[in-house]
Simulated scan of single mutants.
Amino acid sequence: MPDTTALRPGSPAKRAAIIRAALEVFVREGYARASVDAIAEAAGVSKRTIYDYYGGKEPLFLSAVRETAAAQATAFGDLLDRTLGEVTDVEEALTEFARAFATEVARSAERAAVVRLMIAEASHFPDLIHTAPQDRPVQRTLADRLAELGEQGLLEVPDPLEAAEFLGLLVTGPVNARSWYGTVRLDQEEIDRLATAGARVFLRAYAR
C-alpha cells in the first residue's frame, strides 16, 4: 500500500472527474483488468495526477466505491426527510418511504453498478462488505429515524439497527432479486407492489 501521507489534496473538480471515470472503468472492466491509464484517459487527466492524488489503483478503487456510497447515503438522508420527516400516519409514511426507496434502488444505474462491483470484488476487498451495521451509514440513518418513530409511540422498536436492516431487506430484496440488481428493468407498478408488501410485513412486526 502506498504512503498516503504524501498525497496531494488536488483540485476538487479533478478529483470528482477521476472518481467518476474510475467508477465507470472499474464497473466496465473489473478491478483486475482496469488500468490507471484507461482511467486517466477517461478523466482527462495525466496518469501522474492520479498517482499524486490517490497513490495507485487499489486506493483509487476503494475511494471510488466509498465516495460513491457516501454520496448515496446523503441522498438517502434526503429521501428520509421527504418521506419520514413529519409522520402522523405511520402506515402511509412507511409505504411512501418504501416505494420511493425501492424506486431509487431499481432506477439508479450507478447504485446498481456499485452493488454489482462490490459483489464481484468482495473476495479481494472483504472490508467493503464485512462492516458492522453501525458502520453502514444508510442503515444507521434509517435506524435513527425508526428510533424516533418509536419514541413518538408510532412503532415498537426495541433494536433500531435490527429493525432498519429488516426494513431495508423487505423493501429492496424483492426488487433486487426481480431486477437482477438493476440488470432487468421493472415497471413502476411492480416496484410499488413489491415495496408496499415489504412495508406491510414490516408494520405487522413493528407497529404498536
Rank of each mutant, 00 (worst) to 15 (best):
P158L: 10
Q152H: 13
R200I: 03
G30W: 09
E96V: 08
S179P: 02
E67V: 01
V157I: 15
S123W: 02
Y53S: 06
S108M: 12
S123L: 02
P174L: 05
V175M: 12
V115N: 08
A143I: 07
D78P: 00
E24P: 00
A207S: 15
P160R: 05
T4M: 06
V201N: 07
E58P: 01
R136I: 07
L169N: 13
D52T: 14
T49F: 01
G77A: 10
L80N: 12
Y31G: 11
F76H: 15
Y54L: 05
I119H: 10
E189V: 07
V157W: 03
R20E: 10
E96C: 00
V65H: 11
L62V: 12
E58K: 13
P137G: 10
T68I: 01
A42M: 07
L169C: 10
F61R: 12
D89G: 01
R111V: 00
D3I: 02
Q188S: 12
T141Y: 03
A71F: 01
V45F: 04
R66Q: 08
Y54T: 08
P126E: 05
R28G: 03
D81G: 02
P12K: 12
E148K: 11
Q139M: 08
D135R: 14
V157Y: 00
R8P: 04
A163K: 05
Q134H: 15
R28I: 02
A207T: 05
V114H: 07
D89I: 00
G56M: 05
S63I: 00
Y54I: 05
A43D: 04
R107D: 13
A143T: 09
I119Q: 09
E91P: 09
S179Q: 03
S123H: 12
T103M: 12
G198K: 00
G55N: 08
P158D: 02
I19R: 10
D192Y: 03
V171A: 09
S11M: 00
M118E: 11
L170S: 04
P126F: 09
L7D: 05
G150T: 04
R28K: 14
V201A: 15
E190K: 14
P9W: 01
I191S: 10
F76T: 02
Y31T: 12
R8H: 09
A34Y: 05
A93V: 02
F101C: 05
S46E: 04
E91H: 13
I129P: 02
E104W: 07
L117R: 14
G173R: 10
V87G: 06
G56N: 09
A113E: 04
Q134V: 14
V45E: 07
A102C: 09
R140H: 14
A43K: 03
P59Y: 07
S123Y: 01
D81W: 02
V90C: 08
A199E: 05
G173F: 01
D192L: 03
T95W: 01
E189R: 15
I50Y: 12
R20L: 06
T95C: 10
T83C: 06
A34S: 14
A40S: 13
A205S: 13
D187S: 04
P137A: 13
E162F: 09
T88Y: 01
